[in-house]
Amino acid sequence: MAAKAIGPVRRSFAPWNDPNAKPFIEFRNVTKTFGDFTAVDDLSLGIYEREFFALLGPSGCGKTTLMRMVAGFEEPTRGHVLLDGQDLVGIPPYRRPTNMMFQSYALFPHMSVWENIAFGLKQDGMPKADIVARVDEMLTLVKLEQFAKRKPHQLSGGQRQRVALARSLAKKPKVLLLDEPLGALDKKLREETQFELTDLQMRLGMTFLIVTHDQEEAMTVADRIAVMDRGKIIQIATPAEIYEQPNSRYVADFIGDINLLEGRLSSVGAGGAKLECVGTGATVDVAQDVSARVGDQAWFAIRPEKVTISLTPPADPNVNAVSGEVWDIGYLGDVSIYHVRLATGATVKSTITNTTRLVERPITWEDKVWLSWTRDGGVVLTR
């Protein structure tokens, strides 16, 4: 039986919870070095058929190197990369059932949209009638039928991105590799295209592997995310699990906004723990099983939207509560972020959704306020 998901999921699809399911793409103890630099460090990973999988991390963490090893542009120094049970070592890129869509799109400027999409099919010697049918199918898929005769410079950035996507899909690869595919688009178009990508991937039933440093992009499109750092995978989980249950300070801090407060465990028991928190100057009560001992150093992590801000102490005696002074306020349109300075000198952030228009702010600069959160609002991290 599949594990109960944390947070919303896009679809009923979780082969990683099935002990009998076999990965479609598999990295087995893969290491890749460039001289003295280790880009990928003894990494093992399984990606399943029809999964939209994201490799997420900062520049230089090894995510692009992993993708290039699937494509055949790099070979592992040690270990094995398998696709559908076949070891890919020694197989040239053009013989692999994969295709890559690059950030730059790499469209031929002298060719029309139609010719760009048809190029790879012609190289493979596909019959002319089949090429016509396939290109027309791809143009319909990406909704560019009326732009077939235009050259790339006559298209918008979003349209060029769609041409590159259609060209990548035309050969019907088993795996589509997406290397920062939306990086050249403006924010609004990028957000729209993310949802189009997920819908397209589900319709086609293909395996998509995307490399990105954009956490929002990974959270939007992926079934699972692998957060990477220095050639290693720090955590693999669904977007909701990565956000709500990070396994380390690195993941908590990399994904979204977070309050991280240091302390020491004063109590550890079944279903709960208490943390003497230096940042809050109080004991934080958490509804969580913690694999650590009393006296161990730990950090309390809580998202700003889980922290309630008010002018009066909370009525519920079972919540965690501390007092402070509003130090700064960030207005972002849909939300306002309050930076509250505590008596300890630590700053805790709280987010309020702006549900009404043109209403006088009830809490403002230099107000004395209370911050509160439930026992299950945050998590204790021990690394």
Rank of each mutant, 00 (worst) to 15 (best):
W16N: 07
A118G: 04
S112P: 12
E241V: 03
V70E: 02
M111V: 03
L265K: 11
R96W: 04
I6D: 07
V348H: 10
V290E: 01
D376F: 12
I258D: 03
G330Q: 12
L185T: 03
R11P: 10
M101E: 02
I236S: 02
Q235I: 01
A273W: 00
R150W: 15
K274H: 13
S336R: 07
E115L: 11
Q103S: 04
G60E: 04
Q201I: 03
R249L: 09
A346T: 12
P304A: 08
Y105H: 05
L56Y: 09
P181F: 01
N259E: 05
I337N: 09
W299N: 04
S112I: 13
F13C: 05
T64W: 10
T65R: 03
C277P: 01
T382E: 00
D136N: 15
D179K: 06
V294C: 14
V70S: 02
V359L: 11
T64I: 12
G35F: 08
S248L: 02
K306P: 10
N247K: 00
R96G: 01
G60S: 03
Q154E: 10
G79D: 01
V326R: 07
V30F: 02
E244V: 09
R375K: 15
I91F: 00
N259D: 05
G231D: 03
P181S: 03
L176H: 02
G125W: 14
D257H: 12
R264W: 11
P313M: 07
K172V: 11
F37G: 02
K349S: 06
F27Q: 02
L204A: 06
K32E: 00
L56K: 07
L56Q: 10
E244F: 03
I210V: 15
C61G: 08
T356C: 10
D334H: 14
L66I: 05
K149G: 14
G158W: 06
G272R: 15
D257Q: 13
R10F: 12
T38F: 00
M126C: 13
D84S: 07
R190F: 03
Q86G: 08
L275F: 00
M69E: 01
K122A: 07
V132K: 12
G7T: 15
G85V: 05
D376H: 14
A3E: 06
I47R: 01
G205W: 13
G120D: 04
F208E: 05
M202W: 15
P127I: 07
A282V: 11
D130H: 09
G7P: 11
V227W: 00
R293C: 12
S310V: 09
E74C: 08
K143D: 09
F53H: 07
D316E: 11
R150Q: 13
V290A: 02
A270T: 13
G57V: 04
T374Q: 11
A129Y: 06
I6G: 05
V9Y: 11
A106F: 10
L43R: 00
E51R: 08
G62N: 01
G256H: 10
E360A: 14
T280A: 06
G85Q: 02
Q235A: 02
Q154W: 11
V113N: 00
L56S: 05
G35V: 06
L182Q: 00
P19V: 10
F108V: 02
F53P: 03
H153E: 11
R50G: 13
